[in-house]
Design a protein around this nucleic acid. Structure first.
Lengths: 203, 203
DNA sequence: ACCTGAACACCGTTCAAGT
DNA sequence: ACCTGAACACCGTTCAAGT
């Protein structure tokens, strides 16, 4: 607030004529930046999954460049014009993939939450200089874990720490999309355990 | 810091003898609270998926009661004793379900990230009094969206807003687990597109 | 009616000075 | 050597007073 006011050559109080608080300001700026998200990413010829992943990557790249905003995007859900455009595009891609409607509706939330959380996580780490040191500490702890008490952690030590952020991001998005596409939402009526994939429209 | 110092009847400066900064303090408190997570949730007779979901729900419930901590847990990854215990338990459950090792190793991160992000999101909303008002605004926007420009959002309006936080949480966890179990990690060697499910040990 | 200087009530962190 | 009072450099938000 104070920084923005300074940029605008005025006192911070003046901003409160236009926004109620910091959360509202963040939401407005976020929606503005949402306009920069690439809804038709380069690999236009790819699978609908790849294009979906591309849109979400573009979204998270945008947040990555604005760490403070990424953090507040997790709590302050926007509802502006550009947000709706993004939502529409994500739903259209899921529909193109034949993902059942109710699963797509709940799925977009997880997809956006994942992209947002990842951006918040990594961009904050990128900011702090002690990030590398912290990662070193985790590496040592994981590799030095006792075999008897933590057999799985010990065995998987290398895998747990493996992969570039990009590779992990790509895999996570695929896993997320697959999970959304293959997990039926509960039926509104209190019916007993529904047949898996009962309401899928496509496979 | 100041609040804690007050609780301890001293000045904030004294805390810096024991911790380097707020992030380190949060990490220490978080690991302590991780000790409260129920690793053998009630439904001990359920599917491995249900037990996995149970552990993660217990984790997110704990964070839900400590909103400030939930927010910092997203960035400050702990590496203490209780964190390792939790990691070990999650890996054991995934192994029990026959999830391939490399997928399990990357999967635990997403699972914990999802639970953390959800807790941070909802507990912050629970704190702020304007949360309900904000949700009302989103509801109006979604229901009032133009059919021509946003056909999918319009059609799915009800579904987008449907479901209790608990139902959504449960479904999301299932989707996540399914996705992790069915999405092969990239092979380290630069091989061409691997056969789907190539390295699954179970189905 | 619209805007804002100055103040209020907070933060985390540092460091010189004490014991 | 260990601890801490006081200060530094910030925040977001409010409101009485100005134009």
């Amino acid at each position: 607030m104070r920084l923005l006011a300074q940029e605008l050559d005025t006192g911070p109080a003046s901003l409160y004529v236009y926004v109620a608080n910091t959360a509202e300001l963040h939401a407005a700026v976020l929606d503005e930046l949402l306009g920069e998200v690439d809804l038709e990413p380069a690999e236009g010829e790819g699978d609908w999954r790849d294009r979906l992943a591309g849109v979400l990557t573009s979204y998270s790249d945008m947040l990555f460049e604005h760490p403070a905003l990424a953090r507040s995007a997790l709590t302050a859900r926007p509802n502006g014009e550009h947000y709706l455009r993004l939502l529409e595009r994500l739903l259209a891609l899921l529909d193109e993939g034949g993902v059942p409607r109710t699963q797509a509706a709940w799925g977009v939330d997880v997809l956006l939450q994942f992209a947002t959380a990842t951006a918040a996580e990594q961009s904050t780490r990128g900011q702090a200089p002690e990030a590398a040191e912290e990662w070193d500490a985790l590496t040592r702890v994981i590799h030095g874990v006792d075999v008897k008490s933590h057999p799985h952690v010990h065995t998987l030590a290398a895998s747990l720490l493996a992969g570039s952020p990009e590779d992990r991001m790509t895999w996570c998005l695929q896993a997320l999309i697959n999970g959304i596409a293959h997990t039926p939402t509960p039926t509104p009526t209190a019916a007993p355990a529904p047949t898996p994939d009962a309401d899928r429209t496509d496979s």
